[in-house]
Amino acid sequence: MDCTCDYILPTQPNWEQHYENCRVKWNTRENSECQQNNDGTLPLRNAHLLKLDCDILYHMGLDTQTHNLRDMFGDVKFVCVGGTKYRMKETAKYMAQILDIQCDFTNIVKQAHRFAMYKVGPILCLSHGMGVPSMTIALEELLKILYYAKAKDPIIFRLGTSGGIGVDPGTVVISSSGLSDTLEPCYKLAILGRERKFPCDFDKRLNQELMSVAVDEDFKTVIGVTLCANNFYRGEARTDGAFCDYSDADKQEFLQKLVQLGVTNMEMESTAFAAFTREAGVRSALVCVTFLDRLLGDQVTPDKEVLAEWQQRPAKIVGNYILKYYKK
């Protein structure tokens, strides 16, 4: 089998030799053919789409008849997604600055009134809202955009905020895998009334490359498991929500169990993000900064200036990674 890796950085000692979506690894791991065309474009995963005269991407306000998606997005190599519209616009501005690209920062999907999308040369920045349902809607339509655009070897990064588990606030966590809210290493989705489970590991080689860039920064970055909660308060074992039917001792027992499972942070999208990108055969990474150590409390207490600086940290790592690719 021929290697299909589009290497971003040269291989270093002890690194994985291939990305997870490389044909060499895929065909020995999965029960299906490698989800990547020979030219690096994405194959169509849903044959029903062939029956449509026009595919309407409703939540983006785009469609395949009115818009030439190949002209609009065909050069996209990197995609950054995150929760808020503001954060993704700031990410777009940062990418434009470090790559020295002129951009008017027009929200490409403004007409749909749901998400925000900015294009900076070969980089797409997209907000996806909060939680798995909102994120997966945005992600599925993003993947269809990349398919119709015939984008080659795209890489998707989720840049987020999270609650740390046993790490100092301000630490950046690169996720090795997701963990469901029932502490299972999978993403669970009910399809036609039956629950199905999908693997949710992230690309080891990509994570190693990101860590090699992160060591140059003046903040701490670690790789660890990320818990995906379905609710910000009780779902994340907080005691400061409108409801709480467990004790502080119960909460600490749960959090210590997470520590034993290798969990270093918690947020609300990780399992689905890993599962969807993996199923699509797209390399992805989850890079989140922590706002607090949940072992010590529930509320986010740093002032706005500190939080604003911390929020930039995932973008700094990913931005420097992208910059190294284009310098190469």
Score class of each variant (00 low, 15 high):
C3N: 07
D6R: 05
Y7K: 14
L9F: 09
Q12M: 12
W15V: 01
V24R: 05
W26K: 08
R29G: 04
E30C: 12
E30S: 13
S32D: 15
C34L: 03
Q36C: 11
Q36F: 00
N37R: 09
N38I: 04
D39P: 14
D39Q: 09
G40C: 04
P43Q: 09
N46E: 10
A47L: 14
K51P: 00
D53I: 01
C54P: 13
D55T: 11
H59K: 01
M60F: 15
D63R: 13
D63T: 05
H67V: 00
N68K: 06
L69D: 02
R70S: 06
M72Q: 08
F73I: 02
F73W: 14
V76I: 14
C80M: 12
G82C: 05
K85V: 03
K85Y: 06
M88P: 10
E90V: 02
E90N: 11
T91Q: 10
A92I: 01
A92N: 08
I98A: 12
F105Y: 15
T106P: 13
N107C: 04
I108M: 04
I108T: 03
I108S: 00
K110M: 07
K110D: 14
H113C: 06
R114V: 10
R114S: 13
F115P: 08
F115G: 07
M117I: 01
Y118C: 05
Y118K: 12
L124M: 06
C125A: 09
H128F: 01
M130L: 12
G131M: 04
I137D: 02
A138H: 02
L139T: 01
E141G: 02
L143S: 00
I145M: 13
A149F: 08
K150H: 13
D153L: 05
P154F: 00
R158M: 11
G163A: 10
G164Q: 11
G164T: 10
V167P: 13
D168G: 06
T171G: 08
V172Q: 07
V172T: 09
I174K: 03
S176N: 10
G178M: 04
G178V: 06
L179C: 03
T182W: 14
L183G: 06
E184G: 04
C186K: 12
C186H: 13
Y187G: 03
Y187I: 01
L189I: 12
L189Y: 14
A190M: 12
L192K: 13
R194G: 01
K197Y: 05
F198C: 05
F202N: 04
M211P: 06
M211C: 08
V215Q: 13
E217K: 07
T221E: 10
G224Q: 01
F232I: 02
R234E: 15
A237Q: 11
R238A: 00
D240P: 02
D248L: 14
D248Y: 09
D250W: 05
K251N: 09
Q252F: 03
L255E: 11
Q256N: 15
Q256V: 02
V259G: 11
L261C: 03
N265M: 03
M268S: 10
A272M: 11
E279A: 15
A280G: 03
A280K: 05
V287Q: 09
V287C: 03
C288Y: 02
V289T: 07
V289C: 03
F291M: 11
R294N: 03
G297W: 08
D298P: 02
Q299Y: 10
V300F: 09
T301Y: 11
K304S: 14
Q311I: 01
Q311A: 12
N320Y: 13
Y321K: 07
Y321I: 09
